[in-house]
């Protein structure tokens, strides 16, 4: 599989890219910090015993970098079978309420810019005759919840966009996969108290890779979050107002 990967340097993206490299997929890294990309490229190429992993500049804050980056990846990989997006911004509700500029930036990056990146990726994949677009959203987008109001709203928007994309293009061979991680212990969530069923990046990566191979449109990871979110979605408003989850 030839994969263009935005967000492979850290956390769950790093774990997923490693699994892909170890089984022999070819990867092109997209990101804004070229020195950091080089280090991840070295890591992946040693793990996969594969030739140097290419990397191209792409910044989720700069939509004009999206199409050129995907074209460059396509060229470096001599084609394209999949695009993976794990990059995003995270901040707690308190942090976002205290800093309007940060809130605006988070909503822009996690929603509109990610959507625009996916539009560019979709176009390229359709030109290739189909493929897989795998994007990390979040369980935070499943329900309006007190600790993740703004972050959750952006992810809810992204989830709906990805769902629509899958409905429209599956018949043309474009498989859109929405990943909804629960709490996962990464540097993004460092300093937050992990709830029960907190996951590790490696476990999430295994579930996601299996979903990519099967073409499953929605994947919760770790697995118990599927059930947890089913319950949360079913709770009446009166209860949601009372709990702090």
């Amino acid at each position: 599989m030839r994969v263009a990967f935005l967000g492979a340097t850290k956390g769950m993206g790093r774990a997923l890219a490693r699994l892909m490299a170890e089984r022999g997929d070819t990867i092109c890294l997209l990101g804004r910090n070229s020195a950091d990309l080089e280090r991840s490229a070295a890591d992946l190429s040693v793990r996969g015993a594969i030739p140097p992993v290419p990397s191209v500049a792409c910044d989720l804050e700069k939509p004009d970098t999206f199409a050129p980056a995907i074209d460059a990846a396509r060229e470096a990989l001599e084609g394209l079978d999949a695009v993976v997006v794990t990059a995003a911004v995270f901040a707690t509700q308190e942090e976002l309420e205290a800093d309007a500029a940060l809130a605006e930036r988070l909503v822009r990056i996690n929603f509109s810019n990610t959507v625009m990146f996916c539009e560019a990726a979709k176009k390229a994949l359709l030109e290739e005759g189909g493929g897989t677009l795998c994007v990390f959203s979040s369980v935070a987008g499943e329900r309006g919840r007190k600790p993740v109001i703004i972050y959750g709203a952006a992810k809810a928007g992204l989830t709906r966009y990805l769902e629509g994309l899958d409905h429209k293009h599956r018949a043309e061979g474009l498989r859109v996969i929405t990943v909804k991680p629960g709490f996962v212990k990464t540097s993004m969530t460092a300093g937050l108290e992990p709830p029960p069923f907190a996951g590790e990046p490696d476990g999430v990566a295994e579930r996601v890779l299996s979903a990519i191979d099967r073409g499953a449109p929605v994947v919760y990871a770790p697995a118990p979050w599927r059930l947890i979110m089913a319950i949360i979605r079913a709770l009446p408003r009166a209860i949601m107002r009372r709990i702090s989850f």
Binding site: G11, D36, E193
Partner: peptide, 27 residues
């Protein structure tokens, strides 16, 4: 960067001390 919470850190023999552990990819 969020200040990590104060927790109990311990060695393998379970000798422990209060501490804050900062984590991240970019040392």
């Amino acid at each position: 960067m969020r200040e990590p919470p104060l927790s109990t850190l311990s060695g393998w023999g379970r000798h422990s001390a209060p501490g804050r552990e900062r984590v991240g990819e970019d040392l």
